[in-house]
Design a protein around this nucleic acid. Sequence first.
DNA 1: CTCTGCCTTAC
DNA 2: CCAGGTAGGCAGAG
Length: 357
Amino acid sequence: MLADIDYFYAQVEERDNPLLKGKPVIVCVFSGRTEDSGVVATANYEARKYGVKSGMPIALAKKKLLKADAKFIPMRHDYYKTVSEKVMAVLRDKADAFEQVGIDEAYLDVSLKINGFDDAERLAGMIKEEVMSKERLTLSIGIGPNKVIAKMASDLSKPNGIKAIRPEDVVNVIHPLPVDRLPGVGKKTYDRMVEAGIATVGDLAHFDRAKLVNLFGISLGNYFHNAANGVDDDLVHEKGEQESISRIVTLKEDTNELEGVMESIRPLCEEVADKASKRGLLFRSIGIIAITKDLGIRTRSKSLHVATNDKVILTKVVDELFSKYLEESKVKLRRAGVLVSNFEKKGTGQDVLTRYF
DNA sequence: CTCTGCCTTAC
DNA sequence: CCAGGTAGGCAGAG
């Protein structure tokens, strides 16, 4: 199963404020640069009727909703996180294997506790009821013989639905769909596929596997071929440790000056170092993220010889990386960020003083 | 094989 | 008109 909380952030806001019911609700990330700068995180279905979508500039969403009584609400990420944890606890409890994906989705392997797809549909209904009674939230649940099919089934069931795709129906259900409904096919890949004459999932299924590998690489090429044929042997497994920690901000104004950037960046170095320390992690790679005024993304990074979590070292390396970057680049920066990765668990890595004893 | 930089997806 | 955080793959250079 793939269980997905419907229009999550906006649904939580509706739940907590009945006055919002029936109105377009848009949960926004305001960047603080101007009154309306920022993007839409989630919109409820009322707002979607007007063409409002996740990732859209808030200013554009407001334009589309000029004549509607729409509510624009600032995102409360920490709160949604705690709500998510409660829902996930219910879901995890129902599965033999569990894999959370993002804040509002999870795969549940329930093969061992059900007997056939009818039974799985009953279980999905019980899960939805339990989440409704405990958290007052609706879910959509897709059921299939593997993860890709379960995911596609959940998309077809939204909102507040249950849909099972049985093995014997897989091909008939997915082959007519446009190829970008296959998970992993985004805008860029879709354009390339259309260029190659692939418009539907069925087209993709019948496309030569070797050619797909040529076009998209060995890993993606084989994934596309198998998935389009309803085949996916990816296991449902609990995610491992986090592999990177990053923070990024929008600058007050576009700039090309080191001090202007570092002013905004230094607090982020602190936060990142603190977060690593809190988790008992030492990082060996330090990176910067630069987003130019035309929204292009540049990154620079550097690996250290010895892992650290020292914010002074972090800040100094970040300063050097930005200094070097700003010398090379001409375009002004709109946003800037810090990333650390290549973690070692504190205490298990090499200890310079004691290692040789 | 490692490091680096970039691309792409997705929530 | 434009956030923020994380993952994973690929390619080129060393």
